[in-house]
């Protein structure tokens, strides 16, 4: 009887040991996740930590699309149960205010009566015509207004 008990206990211990060794280690998962996301150029500042198979992503990425993409990569790694996405989106390089640009354009175009300009979402669109000599002068003034983009459709005379 005692012998049977010992054997069964041994079996349980072996079973447990076997189970534990099969269970994926967090450190291994972390390594796998790090390798996987390293392939994404937007993930340079991303840090992945793993606890009980749950991956937590922290750091800064350039936009929402990059955040979703990196989250997807991490979720696709073997043995990852779930992903907590704590990634932050980098602030935009330029945060243009149309009204401020509009105001600046009035002054910038004062000496260029043949030029028209509109602004929408920080993008300045220039239309009309200008002399070759005046073009760089106008462009310097317009570039100084901190636009998101300049869409120059001017005809150079």
């Amino acid at each position: 009887m005692k012998k049977f008990q010992i054997i069964s206990m041994l079996a349980i211990v072996l079973l447990l040991a076997g189970f534990t060794s099969c269970k994926p280690k967090d450190a291994d998962i972390q390594k796998a996740v790090e390798t996987a996301i390293a392939a994404n150029p937007d993930a340079a500042d991303v840090v992945a930590t793993v606890e009980k198979g749950v991956v937590t992503l922290t750091g800064e990425v350039k936009d929402e699309a990059a955040s979703v993409a990196i989250n997807g990569i991490a979720a696709g790694v073997k043995n990852v149960k779930s992903v907590v996405n704590d990634l932050t989106i980098a602030p935009p390089v330029v945060s243009a205010v149309d009204s401020a640009i509009q105001e600046g354009l009035v002054d910038a175009l004062k000496d260029h009566s043949s030029v028209n300009a509109t602004v929408l979402d920080g993008v300045i669109t220039l239309t009309g015509e200008i002399t070759k000599a005046d073009l760089p002068k106008l462009m310097q003034k317009v570039n100084a207004l901190k636009p998101v983009k300049i869409d120059n459709q001017l005809t150079v005379k």
């Binding site: 073009l135 760089p136 462009m139 310097q140 570039n143 983009k149 300049i150 120059n152």
Partner: peptide, 26 residues
């Protein structure tokens, strides 16, 4: 120096119309 940078810009894009650069130097 600012004029020089604009001169270089003009040699790359003579009509300043590519719409892919904002050069804001003072």
């Amino acid at each position: 120096v600012k004029d020089k940078l604009w001169e270089v810009y003009g040699s790359i894009d003579p009509t300043f119309s590519a719409g892919d650069l904002v050069l804001d130097v003072n």
